[in-house]
Each structure stands twice: as structure tokens, then as C-alpha cells.
Design a binder for these strands. Structure first.
Length: 666
DNA sequence: CTTTCGCTAAACACGT
DNA sequence: CACGTGTTTAGCGAAA
């Protein structure tokens, strides 16, 4: 009797049991009380033990919150300060999209709705937006205060009598001061995230402590040096020029730039029309009459700052002063380096942010208890696993790092319906479906899963298999499997009891996992044959088969061998469905297409998924969502195209099966 | 509506 | 006895 409710009950209880979950979110629950007193904390409050990292996280979080509030206000039309909202409308769209939705959706949901890269993009976008808004807000506030102050002063002059006035003034000044302090602080925090674009002109902040990265002043310095240094031997010539074009936009540095491209579609709730890229700080580029290197009446060529009355003059200046010569190319190179550095920095910081978000948001503030139940993670495990992780992680810079160089990171752009479904409590089967491209998915996002506490969209079986296949000898002990899970997925660093049980359960339940006695115990191996067999349980031969295979089992059949091979080599490409989908990537496809094709269908229909994909395409699939009937139909044709080869193979699954088994232990 | 699938929970057996 | 490993059963929810 109890049993029945057990699962339900358990689900909810655990969270309380471990309590950790909720507490973790409000780290420093006590600190929370402290509220705004980060300064206090910094100066060594009671909990002076708070590690710098924690502090920083906390600060960041707060800064973000402030920004969010402000944005909400704006979105609500309460724009407080200045009445000149000329630009507001443009901003509002993104705001509503980027900010509001997160509010309505739990972070967790977001995680599940969006594919990792999307998430990344979204996060960054949000950050950028918030930062800009924040900056503007501060500016306005300051102006307003100044104004008020002035008014007061004047009033005071006219009626120089009571002290209340003096008091008022004082109050204002204090307010102003506070404002500035606050601003400084937030901006500082933001800088730490490497996202603020400080421009000499507009930065109100001293910014003495820019993290490790380049700070504007340094930059200027650098520029001067370069400029002074004159010609560099090996001028890059034309190529350099081209590069310039690419980088040019980065003049204003990351924040603003990074996000726009990533953009907004793919937002679950409303693909709210178009959003004008936020302008604010970088007004160029929206205005046809402007130039990325021209702003605020001066030339923005690094280290230049020459005043130009108008665009025409500027252009002239540009052509004369910054023509294609050694110096310019050298500067260009420097700029490239700068940008690169910033990108790296950005990647790092955003990764950190993700981790933070993942960590802080894990608890479902939702009525519906999610499967997320506990944060069992013993700190011990955590630290351990993380350390484990690092070695791996280090070599390759954060996923995002690689991407930024190109216009944007890989943009998955679309939300897979499957993912959408994930939203809820469980990701179950869809994972199954999508597990198909597991290796590729993993390959693409492993960095993400490693650090973000997101449940991977794969079944235990497929994960186990992946783990095993990844090893040279295709065999693992139970413990090694555990380790693989924790190493590869942040998600599995918690609730160990649960998922370990599930792993064991899967191992013994599925025939595809074979236990082999070994000298020093037992190891588990994968019987590919069984594995593939398993998927299409009922549909043998039937026409549906194909479809099922494609959708559900995808993986197994066709790619088995590919998979294996790929897996062996560390699941490098084998790129996902997406690619196909895109077809843009046609080049690479040949290898994986089998696999892909099988998967493609779904992908197409769902529209989503994936990860990497070519950015270009990205704009299209926007609306995806899930349109059952049509989507399917659509997808079909498409997949066919992609699949042609495949179809040839598919006709007889028998064949497939026979083929597959090839390399494993029979 | 039924079946299948995957997940979680839990009981139990065994060996160390 | 505690713990890890395996096996098995049961119930639930989602998808087919």
C-alpha cells in the first residue's frame, strides 16, 4: 500500500531530507540576511570565511538580480528615471524575451528546454543585455540625482534659510555617492565576468582591478606601443585586412557583440518577433550612416581617438590615417589578439556562470516536484569529481571558447521537441530517441555536461554503452562506469545512490550488457548485437520499422559500426543529425550520415536538437516547436534526401543486424 | 485504452 | 556488520 505512493512521496521528501538542495540555492542563507552588505562581507564579516569565489558568485548573483529588477521595471513600462526612452522600445523586446521568460520558467526548465549551446548563448545574451541596461540605468540615475541636486542647490540659494535643505542636499549627495558606489561595485563585478565593455568615454568606473584580462587602459597602452613601434617586419598584408573586418566589430568588445548573433530565436515561449539588436553602447552598425570605428565623434581605431566632425570626415581620416600599411596591419593583429583573449576570457567566465547557475538553481522552486530531488552531492564527491574532471577539461578550452571565434558558437538554434518535453519531471524516452547521436552529442557538449548540472538526454543504457565503448578494451568495471558518469556529467555528481542503482539495474537488466569475469573481479562489456536488437522491440520487418529505427533506435542499427569506430576514437565527429539537417555541413557528413540520417528524421521533425550545427542555418529553423503532423511529413522527405544511402541499407533489417554485430564479442 | 519503455525504489543474495 | 556488486520485482509516467 505504501509502496504505491512511495515513489511520489519519496520524490518530494528527499529534497527536504537532504535539504541541501534548497539551502544550496540560497547559499549563505544566513548571508542572505546580510542582504546588501556584500561590502561588509568583503571586508570580513562574520563569515569572513566565505571563500573569494563564493563571494564573487554571490556578488554576481546580486548584480544580476538588480539588473533583472531594473529590466522588469522597464519592461513594465515603469521606466523610472529619464523620460527619454527613445531607445527603450528597441531594448524592450530583447528584454522581455531574455529576461521575462527566465522568470516564468525555472532555470531548470530552461536547461531542459534549451540545448546546451543555446543555454550558453542565452546566458551570455542575458548577461550582455543586463549589463548594458544596468549601465544605462546607472547613468540615468546619476544624471537624475545630479539634476535633483542642482535643483536643490538653486532652491537653496533662493531661499537660503533652513537646514532641512542642507539636510536634503546631504541626503542627495549621499544618495549620489551610494549610487556611484553601487555602480562601481556592480560594474566591477561585471568586469570580472569579463563582460563589460568599458569604454573610456563611458566607463564611469576607475576599474583598477580588471581581472587577469586586458583592461582598456592596458589596451590603449598596448596600442600606443604598437603604434609607436612602427612597422612590423612581416606585415600581414591583405589577409590581415580581412581579419580586420572580422574583428572590427569587436572594437567595442565582447559583451554587446557576442550576444546579438546568438540571438534570440529559439525561445520557447514566444519567438517574439524580431528584436533589434540592442544598441546602446555600440550604436554603430544599426545605423547605416554609422561606422563601427566611428562613435561619439571620434575615431575608434585603437589608440587613435582623433576627433571627426562627421562620418564623412571620419571616413577620410580612416582612409588616410589607417590605410593598409604595416602599422595598421600590426594594430590589427594586436586587436585580434585582444579579441581572442577576451573571447577566451568570456568563455571562461560564462562557463563559470553556467556552473554557478546550475549550482544555484538546481532546486525546483516549482510546485511540481521534479525528479531532481536531492542534492545529495556530498561535498566530498563533488570536489573529488571536479578535480577529476579538470585534467580533462583543461586541455580543451571551454566549448564556448572555440566557438566565439566564428560568428557565434555553434548554434543549435532550435529547440527539439524532445527537449521540450524534457521540461517536466523526466526526460525519459526522448532521451532514448536522441540518444542516438549520443556520441556526437556528447562530443559536442561534453564540456557542457561536465560542468552544468543538467541531466543528459540519454538513457542509462546508452550512457553505459558509451562509457564502455569509449575505453580501448571495451570493458569497464562497475566502478569505472560510475567514475565515467561522474566525470562526464556534473549531473551525476549528486544523487549517487539513485543513479548508481539505476546503472546497476540497467546492467543486469539488459542483455546487451555482458558481465565478464576477470582476474580481479568482473567487467562489463557491450553486446552490440543485443543492444541494437533491443531497440526495435516489436517492429520487425514492418514498414514502421524503418520509421522506428530512424526515430527510436536510430543509433543502433546503422551506425553501429560507425559508432563503434568513432567511439573508439573518442567520439569525435559523427556529427549529429543536425548537420544533415543543415546539409550545410555536407562535407563532413559522409562519415556519419548513416547515423545521422537515421536520426535526422527526428531532428528535422522536431526541428531541433542539436548542438553544433552550422551557425548559418540557424536562422531558419526558428519556429520549430512541435507540429505533430506536418512536422513529421516534412521531416520525412528531408530525411530521405539525407538518407538516400541509408535507405539502401535499411530495407532489410536483417542485413543490418548481421552487419552490425561485426566487431563485438558475439 | 493498452502496451512498451525507461526510471526509480527497494528487497535480496553474495562476496569481501 | 557494513559495504559493494548483482539480480529481481514493482510501480509510475510518458510515448507509441
Amino acid at each position: 500500500m505504501m509502496v504505491e505512493s512511495a515513489s511520489e512521496t519519496i520524490r518530494s521528501t528527499p529534497s527536504s531530507q537532504n535539504g541541501v538542495g534548497s539551502l544550496a540555492n540560497q547559499p549563505d542563507g544566513g548571508g542572505g540576511g546580510g542582504g546588501g552588505g556584500r561590502e561588509g562581507a568583503a571586508s570580513g564579516e562574520p563569515n569572513g570565511e566565505m571563500s573569494p569565489v563564493e563571494l564573487l558568485h554571490f556578488q554576481q548573483q546580486q548584480a544580476l538580480q538588480v539588473a533583472r529588477q531594473f529590466l522588469l521595471q522597464q519592461a513594465t513600462g515603469l521606466s523610472s528615471p529619464g523620460g527619454n526612452d527613445a531607445k527603450q522600445p528597441a531594448v524592450q523586446v530583447p528584454v522581455s524575451v531574455a529576461m521575462m521568460s527566465p522568470q516564468m520558467i525555472t532555470p531548470q526548465q530552461m536547461q531542459q528546454i534549451l540545448s546546451p549551446p543555446q543555454l550558453q548563448a542565452l546566458l551570455q545574451q542575458q548577461q550582455a543585455i543586463m549589463l548594458q541596461q544596468l549601465q544605462e540605468y546607472y547613468k540615468k540615475q546619476q544624471e537624475q540625482l545630479h539634476l535633483q541636486l542642482l535643483t536643490q542647490q538653486q532652491a537653496g540659494k533662493q531661499q537660503p534659510k533652513e537646514q532641512p535643505l542642507g539636510n536634503k542636499q546631504l541626503a542627495f549627495q549621499q544618495q549620489l555617492l551610494q549610487m556611484q558606489q553601487l555602480q562601481q561595485q556592480h560594474l566591477l563585478n561585471l568586469q570580472r565576468q569579463g563582460l563589460v565593455s568599458l569604454q573610456p568615454g563611458q566607463g564611469t568606473v576607475p576599474l583598477q582591478t580588471l581581472p587577469q584580462a586586458v583592461c582598456p587602459s592596458d589596451l590603449q597602452q598596448l596600442w600606443k606601443e604598437v603604434t609607436a613601434t612602427q612597422p612590423v617586419e612581416d606585415s600581414i598584408k591583405q589577409e590581415g585586412l580581412d581579419l580586420t573586418t572580422n574583428t572590427s566589430n569587436s572594437t567595442s568588445f565582447s559583451a554587446a557583440k557576442v550576444s546579438p548573433p546568438i540571438s534570440h530565436h529559439s525561445l520557447p515561449n514566444g519567438q517574439s518577433a524580431m528584436h533589434t539588436p540592442r544598441r546602446d553602447s555600440s550604436s554603430h552598425e544599426d545605423n547605416p550612416g554609422s561606422h563601427p570605428l566611428y562613435g561619439h565623434g571620434e575615431c575608434k581605431w585603437p589608440g587613435c581617438e582623433t576627433l571627426c566632425e562627421d562620418l564623412g570626415q571620419f571616413v577620410k581620416h580612416l582612409n588616410t590615417e589607417h590605410a593598409l600599411d604595416d602599422r595598421s596591419t600590426a594594430q590589427c593583429r594586436v586587436q585580434m589578439q585582444v579579441v581572442q583573449q577576451l573571447e577566451i576570457q568570456l568563455a571562461k567566465e560564462s562557463e563559470r556562470l553556467q556552473a554557478m547557475m546550475a549550482h544555484l538553481h538546481m532546486r525546483p522552486s516549482e510546485p511540481k516536484p521534479f525528479s531532481q530531488p536531492l542534492n545529495l552531492v556530498s561535498s566530498a564527491t563533488l570536489s573529488k569529481s571536479t578535480s577529476d574532471t579538470f585534467p580533462d577539461g583543461l586541455p580543451h578550452p571551454p566549448t564556448s571558447a572555440t566557438a566565439p571565434i566564428t560568428p557565434l558558437r555553434q548554434g543549435p538554434s532550435v529547440i527539439s521537441s524532445s527537449t521540450l518535453h524534457n521540461v517536466g519531471p523526466i526526460r525519459r524516452r526522448n532521451s532514448e530517441k536522441f540518444c542516438t547521436p549520443i556520441s556526437s552529442e556528447l562530443a559536442q557538449n561534453h564540456e557542457f555536461y561536465k560542468n552544468a548540472d543538467v541531466r543528459p538526454p540519454f538513457t542509462y543504457a546508452s550512457l553505459i554503452r558509451q562509457a564502455i565503448l569509449e575505453t580501448p578494451d571495451r570493458q569497464l568495471t562497475l566502478n569505472e562506469i560510475y567514475n565515467w558518469f561522474t566525470r562526464m556529467f556534473a549531473y551525476f555528481r549528486r544523487n549517487t545512490a539513485t543513479w548508481k542503482n539505476a546503472v546497476r539495474h540497467n546492467l543486469s537488466l539488459h542483455k546487451c550488457f555482458v558481465r565478464v569475469e576477470n582476474v580481479k573481479g568482473a567487467v562489463w562489456t557491450v553486446d552490440e548485437h543485443e543492444y541494437q536488437k533491443r531497440r526495435p522491440p516489436k517492429m520487425t520487418g514492418s514498414p514502421t520499422l524503418v520509421k522506428n529505427m530512424i526515430s527510436g533506435l536510430g543509433y543502433g542499427a546503422l551506425n553501429a559500426s560507425y559508432q563503434a569506430a568513432l567511439a573508439e576514437s573518442n567520439f569525435p565527429l559523427l556529427n549529429s543529425p543536425t548537420m544533415i539537417n543543415t546539409s550545410s555541413a555536407s562535407g563532413m557528413l559522409h562519415v556519419g550520415h548513416d547515423d545521422v540520417s537515421s536520426t535526422v528524421e527526428q531532428v528535422n521533425s522536431n526541428g531541433s536538437n542539436s548542438p553544433r550545427l552550422s551557425p548559418q542555418q540557424y536562422s531558419h529553423p526558428v519556429h520549430v516547436k512541435e507540429e505533430p503532423a506536418e512536422a513529421e511529413d516534412d521531416s520525412r522527405p528531408v530525411s530521405l534526401m539525407a538518407t538516400t544511402n541509408q535507405n539502401v541499407t535499411i530495407p532489410d533489417d536483417r542485413d543490418l543486424e548481421e552487419e552490425l554485430p561485426v566487431e563485438d564479442l558475439s
